[in-house]
Design a protein around this nucleic acid. Structure first.
Length: 589
RNA sequence: GGGGCUGUAGCUCAAUUGGUUAGAGCACCGGACUGUCGAUCCGGAGGUUGCGGGUUCGAGCCCCGUCGGCCUCGCCA
């Protein structure tokens, strides 16, 4: 070992010890006769003192140190003079008087300063990820991620789960996200697909008798990125046999409580259970942020009879008029601000955004107030339980658009109005998702969750009459506006599975060719089983208070799925392509 | 595929209505300084304004194209 102590662990009780520490020069303060170096490693920072009177050779070397040089220092732990302790540092009560120093490696002048208070642009930081990862804030997130994995493994191990790895190179199956493909050298023209999730493997593990499985599994989806989506990401993947929905919910409740306990030392509050229909109605989103209220209200009855043609025609056409209330925000939002919000909701398909400032307990102030009778104005105010100074927003549109627009508006307003403490976590289950959704473009029914999800038994007759009403035995766990986990009871009857494939337009031949191995497995004594997968990266974000998934992944990709550090993806040798029987047919640039 | 924001010194930013030699802080280099901790003080060097075209007497600023980054809609069983 090149060191006897780390930079974060020395305290006043270590006074008098001779120690050897290693680390990076975080700061240097050169006073000629005395030089201070703040030495940094991932455990903390430590002040090293170089005193001319003690050793002039080391002193001269110390004066040449620059940011991010790597040094090894041997010296004596000393108390700092009274009044000169640094309360900002855990090691601030002491310093190390250097007796010997080795410059282990010089650092080129860094392209940006390792300083979270003045961040360089992200593109540059991603290119020099090895420098950005030195920031204590990112190191904290990596540590948090490790702890979350450890907590997960401990929890499942204690419950008798087995962590089993599944292949990265698998078979491409239809449905779902676009696959990342790996060409086969041995089988010309054939491809492996990277897993979008280990879904089929874990179900087959259930058939194989591994009734409690989990895996911290890398997943790949070739779709466009978002602030919370990377092309490769990590799931805590779970599956259990001989269980019902309730068993999964309770098992995962336990996991979340364990994580909160282990990472924050806190007891998590209630994990409420809501239905999909309820959250769409109350929050306009299937992943509502429950840290604040600001629920949606329906104005359909008032809209039908009011004098505002936009409202009553929307209702006549089968649409909805709904709205939400921003408490006391009437004066906080100028007409210009509201115009911006109007543009904002247009992104979600809304044609406009009606607003009312509440003038009194019975009167509204708005460009469209004249279309509403005194009676209607009072009704609207009562519906929102509004008071003077509140600001009301309404969207008149299809059910889907009004939900999307108001759901997004709700999140935006809450953020702007600081309606919640970003550190709190509000976790809830969303149950009873619809099983299928009609795909307008492809003119067919599509699985909302995935094709292996078991319908609610009593809804099965609806296949013949009203498939859109069939509820799935699926469940999402939402936290702070993120979809944090998603799962379902699976189909274990091959006949039901065949029926579902058929319903979503996969012919028996196709099902047999694409999913034959699963159907076959189901025919060989498949136990009833259910499972779920948690988005590990998102949980780290939530625990770490980050709103950017790149912060919680050591080597993330940019929005165009590129790695700025390594330059991936890249072209390859002609030889490699020849081996893989591949000819490039890219559009000319 | 669509919408929005963005690119000026190594970094973070500024630069009036299109107008002189594109500035500041930090970093870097040199010097001073024995108790600093965002050290301080003095001095210096540092620019293809992402790239390509256009308009103009004159472009960091306007126009067209292009490349990269970020947010977002679609997409993400």
């Amino acid at each position: 070992m090149l060191r006897t102590k780390t930079c974060g662990e020395l305290r006043a009780s270590d006074n008098g010890q001779t120690v050897t520490v290693c680390g990076w020069v975080d700061k240097y303060r050169d006073h000629a006769g005395i030089v201070f170096i703040d030495l940094r490693d991932r455990y903390g920072k430590l002040q090293i003192k170089f005193d001319l009177a003690e050793n002039s050779e080391i002193q001269q070397l110390a004066r040449s140190l620059r940011y991010e040089d790597v040094i090894q220092v041997t010296g004596m732990v000393e108390p700092r003079p009274a009044g000169l302790e640094n309360p900002k540092l855990a090691t601030g009560a002491i310093e190390v008087l250097a007796q010997d120093m080795t410059l282990l490696n010089k650092c080129k002048t860094p392209p940006f300063e390792i300083d979270s208070s003045n961040l360089a642009n992200e593109e540059l930081r991603l290119k020099y990820r090895f420098l950005d990862l030195r920031r204590p804030e990112l190191q904290e997130l990596m540590i948090l991620r490790h702890k979350l994995c450890k907590s997960t493994r401990d929890y499942f191990d204690e419950l008798g789960f087995l962590e089993i790895e599944t292949p990265i190179m698998g078979r491409s199956t239809p449905e779902g996200a676009r696959d990342y493909l790996v060409p086969s050298r041995v089988h010309a023209g054939m491809f492996y697909a990277l897993p979008q999730s280990p879904q089929l493997y874990k179900q087959i593990l259930m058939v194989a008798g591994y009734d409690r499985y989990f895996q911290i599994a890398r997943c790949f989806r070739d779709e466009d990125l978002r602030a919370d989506r990377q092309p490769e990401f990590t799931q805590i993947d779970v599956e259990m046999a001989f269980v019902q929905r309730e068993d999964i919910l309770q098992t995962i409740d336990g996991l979340i409580r364990r994580m909160v306990k282990d990472l924050r030392g806190e007891e998590l509050g209630e994990i409420v259970r809501l239905t999909h229909a309820e959250v769409m109605e109350r929050f306009g989103s299937d992943k509502p942020d429950l840290r604040f209220g600001m629920e949606l209200h329906d104005l359909g009855d008032i809209a039908t009879a009011c004098g505002f043609s936009v409202f009553n025609s929307t209702i006549q056409n089968g649409g909805r008029v709904r709205g939400l209330k921003a408490d006391g925000a009437a004066e906080k939002y100028s007409r210009k601000n509201i115009d911006e919000l109007t543009e904002f909701v247009k992104n979600y398909g809304a044609k406009g955004l009606a607003f009312f400032r509440v003038k009194s307990a019975t009167e509204l102030d708005s460009p469209i107030a004249k279309f509403f009778s005194a009676e209607d104005q009072a009704k609207i105010i009562a519906r929102f339980d509004a008071k003077q100074g509140d600001l009301l927003f309404c969207v008149a549109d299809t059910n889907k658009v009004s939900s999307a627009a108001l759901g997004a508006l709700r999140n935006r307003l809450a953020k702007e109005l600081n309606l919640y403490d970003p550190k709190t976590m509000k976790v809830a289950w969303v149950l009873d998702f619809p099983m299928y959704a009609w795909n307008e473009e492809e003119n067919r029914w599509e699985a909302e969750h995935h094709p292996f999800c078991q319908p609610v038994d009593e809804d099965i007759p609806l296949f013949e009459t009203d498939p859109g009403k069939i509820r799935a035995q699926s469940y999402d766990l939402v936290c702070n506006g993120y979809e944090a986990a998603s799962g379902s009871v699976r189909i274990h009857d091959p006949a039901v599975q065949q029926k579902v494939f058929n319903f979503i337009g996969i012919t028996p031949d196709e099902a047999e060719s694409r999913f034959g191995f699963l159907l076959d497995a189901l025919r060989y004594g498949a136990p009833p089983h259910a499972g779920i997968a948690l988005g590990l990266d998102r949980w780290v974000m939530m625990f770490g208070g980050s709103d950017n998934i790149r912060d919680v992944i050591a080597f993330p990709k940019t929005q165009k799925a590129a790695d700025m550090m390594t330059g991936a993806p890249s072209d390859v040798d002609a030889r490699q392509l020849r081996d893989l029987h591949i000819k490039i047919d890219a559009p000319a640039t």
